[in-house]
Design a protein around this nucleic acid. Structure first.
Lengths: 189, 189
DNA sequence: ACTGTTGGTCAACGCTTGTTGGCAACATAG
DNA sequence: CTATGTTGCCAACAAGCGTTGACCAACAGT
């Protein structure tokens, strides 16, 4: 029994499945990303997906386990955090397809929406708590930040509205930076 | 032959189908909103949907024919257009489910995404052209406006992130108004 | 009263989906 | 070398889907 947790013989297959799943979920959304298509991309049999991840929901859960890596931002000077957040998320979106998949599936299914709610609650809220001045306003301000960040992701990476795709990295930081800065630290309007 | 364009005997059925379709598309997205479920909601047979709208794509196209009613905004004073846009879109989102359905389906399928691109191009861009100072910057600025508006819709009406749902109308106008104003009329940063 | 058109139902089609269980090949432990 | 657990493929299942065509009932025009 090769029970050794590190280095199972099937690890290559497992990660191939996850990679293919991320690509398909990002490109096609939850319903159209079929297990058969994912298995074909990973060059294995559909039944292997079921064996390793139980069912389609389990596969999705495993494929979009995401860490935003936000805590690193809380050490920054408070008055330049807006542009820093914009840059950080640009890196995340362009680095891999997990977040695109997440938005696509979140818009398509209740389970996906709940997963995004969880990420918001457990990863964005705590950081906002350490940046915002008024503790009572933290949820509202974090929600505004999320709306602008997810909105850019939606128009640029999911809907692919041409002018949103054509925005350069510098333009995005220059425009969104002050917006996020205001949502996080400006006095209540 | 009751060829009379106004007042066909089947008009009640047709609109019942469209209403049910909008609800289902908004609640479930394109793939999970089945023709059978829509027909059940409208209390008719699935085959009627096919007869009246050809196929599922045709039904979707008919269900989300949307007019943003933006031209009315171009007569406003240029320095208060931001909050006015925010209020206008709040009315639209809360008035009916067409836009929610549109975002859900846009995120799920290529056809839906193209439809949103079309609305952006034909309804948002022309109005932005009459508000923005620099004609060359119009597409980028309109894309930024769309990102914030669609982002709020996504977090509030589709993902239903609790703090985004809890925002009051006044809070939204007070926070988004200046953002949209800046995207539309502020000098290039 | 006859006839053609329209509104609507019913049952079925072909297809794809997620999911399951059986079976062969292989690696490893004793 | 044998026994055991792991990896993988194959074929099949039941369910649900969009879609179709045959059929009946009510109506309108003449």
């Amino acid at each position: 029994m090769t029970d050794n947790p590190r280095g199972r013989r099937s690890d290559a297959t497992r990660t191939a499945i996850l990679e293919a799943a991320r690509e398909r979920f990002a490109a096609d959304g939850y319903d159209r990303a079929t297990i058969r298509a994912i298995a074909r991309d990973a060059d294995i049999d559909p039944s292997m997906v079921m064996r390793y991840y139980g069912n389609k929901e389990g596969l999705f859960a495993a494929a979009v386990a995401v860490d935003l890596g936000l805590p690193g931002l809380s050490g920054l000077p408070r008055d330049t955090v807006g542009p820093a957040v914009a840059e950080h998320f640009l890196d995340l979106w362009e680095g891999n397809e997990v977040l695109t998949a997440l938005v696509r599936v979140g818009a398509a299914s209740q389970a996906g929406a709940e997963r995004i709610q969880g990420i918001f609650r457990e990863q964005l809220l705590p950081v906002a708590r350490r940046i915002c001045p008024d503790p009572e306003q933290v949820p509202a301000r974090a929600a505004l930040v999320a709306s602008q960040l997810l909105g850019l992701a939606l128009t640029r990476y999911v809907l692919r509205i041409p002018p949103a795709v054509d925005l350069t990295r510098e333009e995005i930081v220059a425009w969104l930076g002050p917006t996020l800065q205001r949502y996080l630290t400006a006095p209540n309007p």
